[in-house]
């Protein structure tokens, strides 16, 4: 049991008519890890999650959740699993407590154990104080938190969160991201989907990048960044004609590429910390002033661009 992967996905396929939403997706998530599925709208993230939670029957392929096959052991899968759907799925005319208590019953909790667990979850999502208000009156962020709370009730081994931070205020977003990390600390396995690369970067042990129904890359953040060569981009502007400094900067050690676009000079460098002092020295020698510096560490955005030729966000 210990070394068994929490989630093991074996070449899942799903088509909706002509639309091949998921085409041969495979990956593995170890127990206690956070795995992010990163991809633009329509990439197939939700379809994948739906198959992994036995809501959709795959056309082909299989997956095992804590050893239970999604094809042959739906109940085993559902019991091991907490699902946070992309769309808020709560009864707005019931209070948060009533919602949690109802969903707890659907996971087989009863009586005092249920009551105790509902209180615990209310604490986790930080809504104990307002538990007796109807969910319909909550802000978007509070609803999102209850939406997550429902999936925690039966202390599942594995939890899926499908874009849980869409359209909410920074404070709720922070609360949610922190709680995801807290879940991991308690040994829970998290499958997280998002199209915010910052979230994937911050949270994940492993990241799978999806596009057009396929997993186009899969690995740790560092591994993925290496795909684009691991270079940092520095964008600078100066108080003179950019062309005058371009040659000097190009010859600084560690600058691998330099170009000018509009008034902005872009450099690709291996390590910005080593390069930046030399850039300032060169400017001073030519009696120029650097008026702005923008350092862009290598990121998943760049990886996606590199792999697909498109930006992650439309």
């Amino acid at each position: 049991m210990e070394n068994l992967p929490a989630i093991e996905v074996l070449s899942l396929h799903k088509a909706f008519g002509e639309n091949r939403a998921v085409q041969g997706v495979s990956f593995e998530v170890g127990q206690g890890e956070i795995f992010s599925l990163l991809g633009p709208n329509g990439a197939g993230k939700t379809t994948t999650i739906s198959m992994l939670s036995c809501l959709l029957r795959p056309d082909d392929g299989d997956a095992r959740i804590m050893g239970h096959s999604i094809r042959s052991d739906g109940n085993g899968v559902k019991s091991a699993l907490g699902v946070v759907p992309q769309d808020i799925a709560l009864y707005e005319d019931l209070t948060a407590r009533e919602n949690l208590s109802f969903w707890g019953k659907m996971y087989g909790l009863r009586g005092s154990a249920l009551k105790k667990r509902v209180d615990e979850v209310l604490d986790i999502i930080g809504l104990r104080e307002r538990a007796n208000e109807r969910v319909g009156k909550y802000s978007g962020g509070m609803k999102r938190r209850v939406n997550i709370g429902v999936a925690l009730l039966h202390k599942p081994k594995v939890i899926y969160m499908d874009e849980p931070t869409v359209g909410i205020d920074p404070q709720s977003r922070r609360n949610i991201l922190d709680s995801v990390v807290a879940l991991k600390d308690q040994g829970m396995t998290v499958l997280y989907t998002t199209h915010y690369m910052e979230e994937a970067q911050e949270l994940s042990d492993q990241i799978g990048i999806m596009d057009h129904g396929q997993m186009i890359a899969n690995g740790t953040h560092d591994e993925l960044v290496k795909l684009v060569g691991g270079q940092t981009r520095i964008d600078l502007t100066v108080n003179a004609e950019p062309q005058r400094i371009l040659g000097a900067w190009q010859s600084v050690e560690g600058v691998e590429q330099a170009s000018v676009e509009d008034e902005k000079i872009s450099l690709l460098v291996a390590d910005s910390n080593l390069v930046l002092p030399h850039l300032f020295e060169a400017a001073t020698r030519q009696s120029m002033r650097i008026t702005s510096v923008d350092i862009r560490e290598p990121n998943l955005e760049a990886v996606f661009l590199h792999l697909t030729g498109r930006a992650l966000r439309d």
Partner: peptide, 13 residues
């Protein structure tokens, strides 16, 4: 439409 029905289907019910 409220998406609670699909959610019910994800519980062991």
């Amino acid at each position: 439409e409220e998406r609670t029905l699909p959610r019910l289907f994800t519980t062991p019910t």
